[in-house]
Design a protein around this nucleic acid. Sequence first.
DNA 1: AATCCCTTTATTTTT
DNA 2: TAAAGGGATT
Length: 724
Amino acid sequence: MDVSDLIDPLNPAQREAVSAPLGHALVLAGAGSGKTRVLTHRAAWLVRVEGATPWNLLAVTFTNKAAAEMRGRIEERLGISRSGLWVGTFHGLSHRLLRLHWQEAGLPQGFQILDSEDQRRLVKRIMRDLELDENRWPVRQLQGFINARKDAGERAEDLDSADPYTGQMARVYAAYEQACRSAGVVDFAELMLRTVEMLQNHLELLGHYRRRFRHVLVDEFQDTNGIQYEWLKLLAGPESDVFIVGDDDQSIYGWRGARVENLERFRKDYSNTRVLRLEQNYRSTRTILDAANTLIARNSDRLGKKLWTEGEAGEPIALYAAFNEQDEARFVVERLMAMVDEQGLARSDIAILYRSNAQSRTFEEALMARRVPYRVYGGLRFFERAEIKDALAYLRLMANRDDSAALERIINTPTRGIGNRTVETLRIAARDQGISLWAAARGLVTHGGGLPARAGNALRAFLDLIDGLAADTAGASLPECMETMLTRTGLRAHLGKDGSERAQDKLENLDELITAAGNFEQDNTAEAEMEPLTAFLAHAALEAGEGQAGAWEDCVQLMTLHSAKGLEFPVVFLAGLEEGLFPHRMSVEEPGRLEEERRLAYVGITRARQQLLISYAERRRLHGRDDFAIASRFIRELPPALVDEVRARFSVTGPTAAGTGPGEGAATATEAEFGLGERVQHSRFGEGIVLDCEGNGPNARIQVNFNSAGTKWLVAAYANLERI
DNA sequence: AATCCCTTTATTTTT
DNA sequence: TAAAGGGATT
């Protein structure tokens, strides 16, 4: 059998992983070590060498993008398409299982999925019903609590209600679950938990899948949470082999429940696990890898891994100490423009990475001022836009009248005379009778019940509108159905009624929704059994779409470090490396959280192929306040020999520029003597803090804020300042 | 029902 | 600073 196409392109470590004998394997794959290739080749190997069929494989990822890529590459290696291969995200696969076995799962056939925003609205609704003070019990906190409990596999009744605090939250959890049940909806965490419970309670199903999935492959294992680990342990039975790939050094989602310990746990739970390491890196220069290795070596409890390359040392890492965030942006943009103009680099080869989203603004302004095309990743996704969610809420209600969350969203959008009073009456009736809002409305309209005539008429008109739409669009195609809905509900007219640009955007988004519905293909067995509308709504919830349009243009890429994971760029600007910002002040206290910040820095550094440029600002305007900052400890943790300090503000000539490490070399004597923020003593003005330095040599001036004498510029040579 | 004004809050995010 | 949400006002 010729498997040279699977084996030849691999290095020895990759080869060992791909062709490992059957059994469990844990592949510790460093950044840029070819883990996706190993995973896909392993899948193909199992079929072509070990005699598995695609039907025997289960491949799990975290994002839809990764799932699509893996499916494509496995099918390519196998020369097949549309086989019985199950590749998907944890949530996508759970969804599929629940659709196939909705009865066993105790769900209505047309159940729908709540996204985070839907969930938050619902939790808020519940808390108002329970008359909880939202200041004492923030909604987001309750939402986080519920999700965290579900991620740990716990139901409300599993919680310790003796503790008053937990007890109160458990009450909300229970009421929320009840509301989800009666509306026939599930949230993201519920997809996982419900699947686990279903398999535990239906051993015949469990046995079936365990017999089927002889080979389970998992990507990004360091990102799994408690329930995902349980899910895997269930589906991979005693006869199955589990092949997992992960990198403890790239675990950056601990704050949302990911458990790096699952890597170790796996090794204990699955006996005879073969542990393999992929340490050869094909992405970055030696300089970049050395920097990354040195930085991450400071973390404790690592599984241990050291990246190496056969490639060139490459450019040193550039470090720029900016005066403020605008100077930082100016430096970044001027540098990248020079690279594009002089080295012929594509703009899309350049990324600006930062710790928090708020930092993007300054870069956007600088880029815009110089007319450099750019793209900011993150932000609102297509299916999360308000107008799209309004439209989807109508569709959800058409598919399932009991979806009270959807009803609440659009019952008075556009305004149709159903105000808060009326809706409140509905809520009370629904709660008292234990029925959905729709059923309550139906009851009030048909039997009367204290509604003013005008409200009753408006409510009847609404009920008739939805019923009429559902009846008239039965059998219509999805786009036709949407078109009818948008017109008859008045939603389109409502959204477009002021002719503003914003309104125009919304109308265009609605058109795009219709297009998306037209392009939507039901492509798997579970969905084939579903109503097209139900399938489309699930698709909208599970795959929220792209963040920003404009990807076709050759754009500079702006994103947070978190969203950069998994990507690579020839040139990376890592901005805002300041204490308090990165590492973030909220994470510096706890050692564990600080180490996660360090891993984030490691992820950022290892995104760069050729060149890495790091910057920080000595003062930064944040929340309307100008603050002084000192360079991030992560800068100090890099090997000085690999870092070239750029001092664009001062044209430095002469022998003082000869050194190399940060803090010397290009830095002037003055700067070496007095760091920003340092406390100094002056013979006349007393104590003060160094704010700024300018110039070098005998002309150097230094700005000091004195406790009593105020802020002054002094000539360093004459000032005779003493460090305190 | 729309508008204004005040308070609050500001890390990271996929499903 | 600035954005978003909530409450009160018109």
